[in-house]
Design a protein around this nucleic acid. Structure first.
Lengths: 153, 153
DNA sequence: TTTTAAGTGATACTAACTATCAGTAATACG
DNA sequence: CGTATTACTGATAGTTAGTATCACTTAAAA
């Protein structure tokens, strides 16, 4: 995600492209996956914490940034590479990759129709030990992290 | 979930069934879905906050309680009615129902094998407007809550 | 140019924990 | 049974990730 993309998304949508917002956009543009709001705050001295959070929230609402939840419950921001997608998060190194699985969406929509009402959103995160970290662990995941332990819902 | 079930799960697992723990178990036993840690704290005066959180965490780790995340990111505890399952959470009234979808698990495991390493856990929450609340909204979901807005991952 | 609305930073506050630590209680050992 | 070991406890303070408030500033509209 380039700075220009972000600026374009703010401008002409009824939002004002102010100096503090621009500082935040410049700070996050070009970042890779997996950054925290605090990191952004630290990178824009002089811009208030509230403004940083407000700007991140704005971007998330506009779909320009996604906010996900790690294995331990802590939030991270990342830029979406594709449209609708889900995350694979390595619980060891934090690397995030995306996946799209239209079949999952289809299954969920069937579910909504069948019994639960109208689906208004969903949250799917898959926690993995990535290939690189698997090598470090000797070819298998940490034994103390059984499938779905503590996080499945 | 009855108190006896909880007590049985703590006893004989190397954990001690102490008076404060018992108070917490009694407080949550018989609760329905969707309670917060604060509600439990308020219900067991004299028991320290830390002990309440520690006990809830213990139960979650043991699989006797599940912790999920609402649409707005706030955590809630509920008792699992079935084994492995996921939640349908009404964003209007907070009602929680469970669903099981083995096809989703299958899709995810295929995903892990194909490219992402070893899956160690996942988090799936589906946010809905339940049938009861749909009636209240005139037969359709709140327009300001588009599918996946701000929460899909 | 005035008015209105949006945005800002400082500050304080909240929720949901976690860390530390001295003290207590439960269980194990001899 | 007494002692040692270990688990557990509450109080307190600190952390993370924000949100609420509010006087002030800035940008855009009329």
């Amino acid at each position: 995600m380039t700075n220009n993309d972000l600026v374009a998304a703010i401008e002409g949508q009824g939002y004002r492209l102010t100096a503090p917002r621009l500082r935040v956009l410049e700070s996050i543009a070009g970042r890779d996956t997996n950054f925290t709001a605090e990191e952004v705050c630290a990178d824009v001295p002089g811009v208030g914490r509230a403004t940083v959070f407000r700007t991140l929230k704005l971007l998330v609402e506009r779909g320009l940034l996604c906010k996900m939840i790690l294995h331990d419950g802590s939030p991270r921001y990342s830029f979406p590479l594709t449209g609708h997608h889900h995350h694979l998060v390595c619980v060891s190194c934090g690397a995030i990759t995306e996946f799209q699985e239209s079949e999952i969406e289809q299954l969920l929509s069937q579910l909504g129709v069948s019994k639960a009402g109208t689906i208004v959103g969903h949250r799917i995160e898959v926690y993995v030990v990535c290939p690189t970290c698997q090598v470090r662990y000797g070819g298998h995941a940490k034994p103390e992290l059984p499938i779905s332990a503590g996080v499945s819902s």
